[in-house]
């Protein structure tokens, strides 16, 4: 079983605007595929053409309110994960994006004021145990909403499908 990392450190990519929608994260013209590597080549394309060239494995995406609103396309989560993003920290998430992230075992964390705390390129650390977002570049920190027990269970299982299957196996046994 994959363990949830307790600490993640990476470079920030900050998009502070509220309501960044899934059409911007992965435009519908790319929905004729669902291969993660291919989707990754177009991540954030309609909001920032340079994102894909700059992003590196382990980076952290920081956003404002209502990140991932709009369409239910899980391709948005796959595109970001495929591009190397380890965690998205936003002021708040749209519900389907959040659900898709957790279902994929992909970390989505709600942190009030996250976008004001960081600039693109800053060295960030997410401490899941203490519920802290640390900005090592600025020497600043913010508390975030801890994940619910249910979300933790899903993440610990590696996502929804392994979680559901494990439960099923238990019932059968």
């Amino acid at each position: 079983m994959p363990e949830i990392p307790t600490k993640l450190r990476g470079r920030a990519h900050v998009y502070g605007r509220p309501h960044i929608n899934t059409d911007e994260i992965i435009p519908a013209r790319h929905l004729n595929v669902h291969d993660e590597a291919e989707l990754a080549r177009h991540a954030m394309e309609d909001i920032d053409e340079g994102f894909v060239a700059r992003v590196r494995p382990g980076d952290i995406l920081v956003a404002g309110e209502d990140f991932g609103c709009g369409s239910s396309r899980e391709h948005a989560v796959w595109a970001l994960r495929g591009a190397g993003v380890k965690v998205v920290i936003a002021q708040s998430f749209s519900r389907i994006f959040f659900r898709n992230a957790i279902n994929n075992g992909f970390l989505a964390i709600e942190c009030v004021g996250a976008a004001e705390l960081a600039s693109t390129g800053d060295d960030l650390e997410v401490d899941l145990e203490r519920g802290l977002l640390l900005n090592h570049t600025r020497g600043a920190e913010a508390r975030f909403v801890p994940l619910t027990d249910f979300a933790k269970e899903l993440l610990a299982a590696g996502g929804l499908l392994p979680f559901v299957l494990a439960k099923r196996a238990k019932v059968v046994a």
Binding site: G70, S72, E74, N100, N103, L161
Partner: peptide
């Protein structure tokens, strides 16, 4: 349904909501 506009069908007194592909698989 794996589509955000599934909410449409709530007009007939249903609980109808959009989901992603992993939810759809489950």
């Amino acid at each position: 349904c794996g589509d955000s506009h599934t909410t449409t069908m709530g007009a007939l007194g249903t609980f109808a909501t959009g989901i992603g592909s992993t939810d759809l698989a489950a």
